[in-house]
Amino acid sequence: MPRRHLFTSESVSEGHPDKVADRISDEILDAHLREGARARVAIETLVTTDRCVVAGEVRGPSVGVEEIARRAVRDIGYEAEGFSWRTLRFESHVHAQSAEIAQGVDREDGEEGAGDQGLMFGFACRETPELMPAPLQYAHRILERFAARRKAGDADLGPDGKSQLTLEYEDGRPVRVHTAVVSHQHSRRLSSAALRDLVDGVLREVLPGGWLDAQTRVLVNPTGSFVHGGPAADTGLTGRKIIVDTYGGAAPHGGGAFSGKDPSKVDRSAAYAARYLAKNVVAAGLADRCVIQLAYAIGVAEPLALYVDTQGTGTVPEDRIAAAIRTAVSLTPRAIRERLGLARPIYARTSAYGHFGRTPQADGGFSWERADLVEALQRAA
């Protein structure tokens, strides 16, 4: 890396139209998993002015899709002209899963084949305590702080919002904020100056000390105002924020989205497994940065390939790390599902503020953030 460089990542709030769609898709997935751990679900959602359309394929018990969607919209906070959980027009176009896909996933030998072909990436680095890229991690936390404030009763803040951080790096380490951009939906009552003061306060709460200085540029609602937001102002669709969901552009992406997909879809489960592996490699001291790639074929259980890239930071050779991973874990879809406990209703909470860099939860949520492979990898490597 050059001695000094800039890198930028963005986040979007739970009220961003694409995130509304992701939330609805994942709430429907969770509802199916509550009814049966072997449910197969692939749901897409579109939201726009006064309308919500759900489509996809499922295998499992029927659930109240419209009620689930309205409840999700209400919890996010939309009850206004143009998009309200009470009045939006709803359409469902959900049908049964293809028999050909089903026979490839649930094989006669008792193993589970991958639900699709594809390549998935995981990444970890030492830029934050969560072993995540700093620009994305702090961009998420900025919007989470706004959401907490809004849900605690700040009626001047709307659900829609975006943040973006450009950090300056020195010798590969983030040292200061070059530019912060925050665009947040607000009421007509809230002046630009008041919103600017609010943004300044949140930045100082969230960012490490010393990262904001006299040269830092802070842009707040650069268009001037942001009163009309959410699906009333812009169409949202499941799966359109895959870089926000993962590593903010700091690592490769295989192209598959996550929300609305059950763990037989390796787009989701193997991406979680790749993050789990990369995080444990870094936590084990085998590298300061680690990219893991996995590749699968539909109906085939074993991954086609495992690739490890420590970007020049490894303390042992990459082929030895790859061999240690193969010794420590199985990476078939079934093994991933069982190790990480993925056949549970834990997905709606992933639909905003990132799938990675979160705290593992008692009910199994964010299980892929555990660092419980450290000793096994150290022994094997």
Rank of each mutant, 00 (worst) to 15 (best):
M1T: 14
M1A: 13
R3A: 13
L6Q: 10
L6I: 12
T8M: 05
S11C: 09
V12P: 08
V12Y: 03
E14K: 01
H16S: 04
P17N: 06
D18I: 04
D22L: 03
E27T: 13
R40T: 10
A42S: 14
I43N: 05
V47Q: 08
T48Y: 06
T48F: 02
T49Y: 12
T49H: 09
G56N: 11
G60Y: 12
P61K: 11
E66N: 07
I68K: 07
I68Q: 06
I68D: 05
A69I: 13
R71F: 00
R74M: 05
D75W: 01
G77H: 01
A80P: 00
G82F: 10
F83Q: 07
W85L: 00
W85N: 00
T87I: 01
E100L: 15
I101E: 06
G110T: 06
E112G: 00
M120D: 11
F121K: 08
A124Y: 08
A124T: 08
R126T: 09
P129M: 00
L136A: 12
A139P: 12
I142F: 07
I142R: 03
I142S: 02
I142H: 05
L143A: 05
R145S: 14
R145Q: 13
A148F: 01
R149I: 12
R150E: 06
R150Y: 08
L157W: 04
P159W: 03
P159Q: 04
G161S: 04
Q164W: 02
T166F: 06
V177P: 13
H178F: 14
A180F: 09
A180P: 14
S183P: 13
S191M: 02
S192Q: 15
L195C: 02
L198G: 01
V199H: 04
V206R: 04
V206Q: 02
G210W: 07
D213H: 10
R217W: 00
P222V: 01
H228L: 15
H228S: 14
P231K: 04
P231N: 11
D234Y: 08
T235W: 09
T235Y: 13
L237W: 03
G239E: 01
K241E: 03
K241Y: 03
D245A: 14
G249K: 12
A250W: 12
G254R: 02
A257I: 02
F258A: 05
S259N: 04
K261C: 08
D262P: 05
R268L: 09
A271F: 05
Y272A: 04
A274D: 07
R275G: 04
K279Q: 04
K279V: 05
N280T: 14
V281Y: 01
V282D: 00
A287R: 02
D288F: 05
D288A: 12
V291I: 15
Q293Y: 03
I298D: 06
V300L: 13
L306C: 09
Y307Q: 14
Y307N: 11
G312S: 14
T313D: 12
G314T: 08
T315S: 15
T315H: 13
V316W: 03
V316P: 11
I325Q: 00
I325W: 01
P333A: 03
R334K: 15
A335D: 10
E338N: 11
R344C: 11
A352Y: 08
Y353L: 09
F356P: 11
R358K: 13
G365N: 06
E369G: 10
D372C: 12
E375S: 09
E375Q: 10
E375Y: 04
A376Y: 05
A376M: 01
R379A: 14
R379D: 11
